[in-house]
Simulated assay, not measured.
Amino acid sequence: MGQFAENLSPRFFAGRMLLAMPGIGSPEFDQAAIALCVHDEHGALGIDIGKVIAGLSLRDLLANLDIDGEGLESVPVLRGGPVDPQRGFVLHSLDWGGQDAMQVNAHWGLSGSLDVLRAIAERRGPERYLVSLGYAGWDAGQLESEMKRHGWFLGDAFTPDVLAIPAQSRWAEAFAASGVDARLLAGTSGMA
């Protein structure tokens, strides 16, 4: 409990949503809905759960790894972020734990090894999961600095309910869960 409890302290935000504000100034992060998986004194790592890679299903991804993904044609693969886009990550329920699985919050874990993909393909993996390629990463202090400027909004924890929301709606829904109507946000400001 010690390390997990530390991650929930006001200083670190692992397990929460990091939402790009309109006008963030980077097309890579336009309407990004990032599930912060790691955030500590060494930096941060998150997975954007709001952008699907068009034309790529989990079955296609598994076929490239010589894993039979029969029945997984309708499972999308997310664009997790601009860093290391060939590297895969799986956000998953805590009913599964593999060789490198780490707990992110009370509902989700993160894995980055082939054993979780094999388990999903063999129907012995986690009950709930999101598969992504790439991630968003920040060096020590970088995210905190960016959060002080216009660009990021710290949302609530990401819960299992996120799976019921279409990927393209997760950004607005995460704002709504924090009591913010994303339609009312402006990317620029004026002068009085």
Rank of each mutant, 00 (worst) to 15 (best):
D60L: 03
F89G: 09
A54L: 06
S26R: 01
Q99A: 15
G15Y: 00
E127P: 00
W171Y: 06
V162P: 00
D48T: 09
I24W: 08
A121W: 02
R123D: 09
G2A: 13
L61A: 07
I49P: 00
F12D: 06
R16W: 01
M17H: 00
A14D: 06
L143D: 06
V180H: 08
G137S: 14
M102V: 15
A174I: 02
A177V: 06
E6I: 12
A157V: 10
N64D: 14
D115T: 08
L110M: 10
L110W: 10
L72H: 04
G15L: 05
G55Y: 02
R123G: 02
A35R: 01
G179H: 11
V104Q: 01
P22V: 10
S57A: 07
A174M: 15
M191G: 03
L163E: 14
A44C: 05
D161E: 13
L62F: 07
M191L: 08
L61H: 02
A5R: 06
F12Y: 14
L72V: 09
G25P: 12
R128Q: 13
A174Q: 08
D161A: 15
H42G: 08
A172M: 03
A33I: 07
P76D: 08
F153P: 01
L94M: 13
E70G: 13
A140G: 09
V77R: 05
H92E: 08
K51E: 08
E144D: 14
L56C: 02
A182I: 03
A35F: 15
Y129A: 10
Q103K: 12
D68R: 12
C37Q: 03
L72D: 13
G23S: 12
A5E: 03
R149V: 07
F158Y: 11
E173R: 13
S26Q: 09
L18D: 04
A136K: 04
Y135I: 02
A167T: 04
G80V: 10
L45D: 04
V90L: 10
